[in-house]
Write a protein that binds this DNA or RNA. Structure first.
Length: 554
RNA sequence: UGGGGUGUCGCCAAGCGGCAAGGCACCGGGUUUUGAUCCCGGCAUUCGGAGGUUCGAAUCCUCCCACCCCAGCCA
């Protein structure tokens, strides 16, 4: 994988130190998604971090679903998340874990807290609790239920579990400090009543632990040594430690935080991604325009490119916004090295080579990669009529235009140099056909008269080529910061998808397998759609265009 | 105006008292049957600001400023 000489980031240095000092003998991390949405590029960073740490230091990384809130979770997400992690190139140690499989242990530990006088059942409504909690600058007030006896709390908590109360009627809270400047310590809620069927535990429970009460203890049960989360959980660390200290947990995990990924021209919040899906701005969580792992996959990004990107951006505690150009660079670099070349014509214009016979059929060989012979070569069939891109022809142009101009020459990639001498126009004056002649003996050689062509363009035999649907994807948002002015839906790029129905593609592309990536020369990188592509109705998605220094005009 | 964080080139990011790595982007130039790739060169006398300590500071101290997170029975 990506073995860089890059200096260690702070978490790698931390693990190295803990290993060296004997603080731990093996590093164990975990990737803990809540199954309430699809994984996105931000999760990819976390996955690379957690699995990468385990990989680099010979430890384990667990996959644990943080499924403490059944209302928003579902099995669909559980399946998709596992597929995404595997596709990205990682595998977890042991079975998939679920916070929900620790529910009984968590319940017992809650009772333990009650017995120690460190937790109590509170009858305050959500609204009342908010008032009692105080504000950022004013301390909160103790709940009137705070001093219930251990016996009463025990009985009440058991009754909560038994389903004797309505949803929201009571909660179990830790008894810490209502005046703490850290809001998380103002008697945080440990359990709430929710009569919802849970995707893993069914109807077994009507009370569910909160994230705070479940996460650290789950880590302790699994022997997690380094529990890595994002910066916004930093204020929760004292609470995380409080539970570890006050409960007879089997190990002592520690939480560390890093800055989550922000990408410009992109939104990465499950809520917003879900809105894009629900409002049909995109076709689904795996739409190629989505920054989800499934979306990037369908777009044609490789797992290696995404991993390289995660390695490039580093891991720190500062929160910045990475330029999406960096992701695009990683994608291009990977595809440039690995994608076989092929030719496709998106906006076809017929060129008739009048010095060839109508049934001319000549095989020319073409390397599949200009720098990598290992990728082999393929046959192209050259015929009297070929199509070129309409943008590659001008009746007249200045010297900067290195394509076909009436009266001038151009090389057809991997084949002949041709010279245009006339055009055929329709009633509107549009050029519908170019008449040209091939220059003899120019396959693999310059014209014998010494007049070299101005440039090289791609082509497809009109009779031998196939037709395909090509989807041109572009950035989903027109603004670098889609959420800057409030409504990200207002800055959706109306041209983020342009469909071309009858593009010409060279014959070899008809044999493409779904998810096979190509570089369509001079156009960009494309991938056969994972779901919609087949030999009968080829569909290619543009992953990303080539870098293009060509400036029209001047 | 409580608490917790972060501030090094347009963006990401090394650096941890000895005199500013690297990547992305950008700008030149070269090679090229992809206006791609590749190659060469340029790109922070300065590290949020102001003081101070020191022979010497981005790195230590003091004060200030900016931005991010926290008042879900979400995670």
């Amino acid at each position: 994988m990506s073995e860089s000489s890059r200096p260690m980031h702070f978490l790698e240095a931390l693990v190295a130190k803990d290993l060296e000092s004997g603080n731990i003998t093996k590093v164990v991390t975990r990737f803990p998604p809540e199954p309430n949405g699809y994984l996105h590029v931000g999760h990819a960073k976390s996955i690379c971090l957690n699995f990468g740490l385990a990989q680099r230091f010979g430890g384990d990384c667990h996959l644990r679903f943080d499924d403490t809130n059944p209302e928003k979770e579902s099995d669909e997400f559980i399946q998709a998340i596992q597929a995404d992690v595997r596709w990205l190139g990682f595998d977890w140690a042991g079975d998939v874990r679920y916070a929900s499989s620790y529910f009984q242990q968590l319940y017992d530990w809650a009772c333990d807290l009650i017995d120690q006088g460190l937790a109590y059942v509170c009858d305050l409504s959500a609204e009342e609790a908010r008032v009692y909690r105080g504000t950022l600058t004013e301390p909160g007030r103790n709940s009137p239920y705070r001093e219930r006896s251990v016996e009463e709390n025990r009985a009440l908590f058991a009754a909560m579990r038994a389903g004797e109360f309505e949803d929201g009627a009571k909660v179990l809270r830790a008894k810490i400090d209502m005046a703490s400047p850290n809001m998380n310590l103002r008697d945080p809620i440990l359990y709430r009543i929710r009569r919802v069927v849970h995707h893993q535990t069914g109807s077994e429970w009507v009370i569910y632990p909160t994230y705070d009460f479940a996460h650290g203890q789950g880590d302790a049960i699994e022997g997690i040594t380094h529990s890595i989360c994002s910066l916004e959980f930093e204020d929760h660390r004292p609470l995380y430690d409080w539970f570890v200290k006050n409960l007879p947990v089997p190990s002592e995990p520690h939480q560390y935080e890093f800055g989550r990924l922000n990408l410009n021209y992109t939104v990465t919040s499950k809520r917003k991604l879900k809105q894009l899906v629900d409002d049909a701005v995109v076709t689904g969580w795996d739409d190629p325009r989505m920054p989800t792992i499934a979306g990037m996959r369908r777009r044609g990004y490789s797992p290696a490119a995404i991993r390289t990107f995660c390695d490039m951006i580093g891991v720190t505690r500062s929160d910045g916004t990475v330029d999406v150009a960096m992701l695009e660079h990683a994608v291009r670099d990977d595809l440039n090295n690995n994608a076989p070349r092929a030719m496709a014509v998106l906006n076809p214009l017929t060129v008739t080579l009048t010095n060839l016979s109508e049934d001319h059929r000549e095989v020319v060989m073409s390397p599949n990669h200009p720098q990598n012979e290992a990728l082999g070569e393929r046959e192209l069939v050259f015929t009297q009529q070929v199509v070129i891109d309409a943008d590659d022809f001008r009746e007249e142009a200045n010297k900067k235009f290195k394509r076909l101009v009436l009266g001038k020459r151009v090389r057809l990639r991997n084949a002949y140099v041709i010279e245009a001498y006339d055009v055929v126009k329709d009633a509107d004056g549009q050029v519908v056909e170019v008449l040209a002649k091939v220059i003899e003996n120019t396959v693999g050689a310059d014209p014998e008269d010494g007049i070299k062509p101005k440039g090289v363009i791609q082509w497809v035999s009109k009779s031998e080529g196939g037709r395909a649907t090509i989807r041109l994807y572009d950035r989903l948002f027109t603004q670098a910061e889609p959420e800057a002015d409030g409504d990200f839906m207002a800055v959706v790029n109306p041209n983020s998808l342009v469909v071309i129905e009858n593009a010409y593609v060279e014959p070899s592309l008809l044999r493409a397998q779904p998810e096979q990536a190509y570089q369509f020369e001079r156009e960009g990188y494309f991938v056969a759609d994972r779901f919609d592509h087949c030999a009968e109705t080829p569909v290619f998605n543009r992953t990303i265009g080539l870098r293009d220094a060509w400036q029209e005009g001047a």
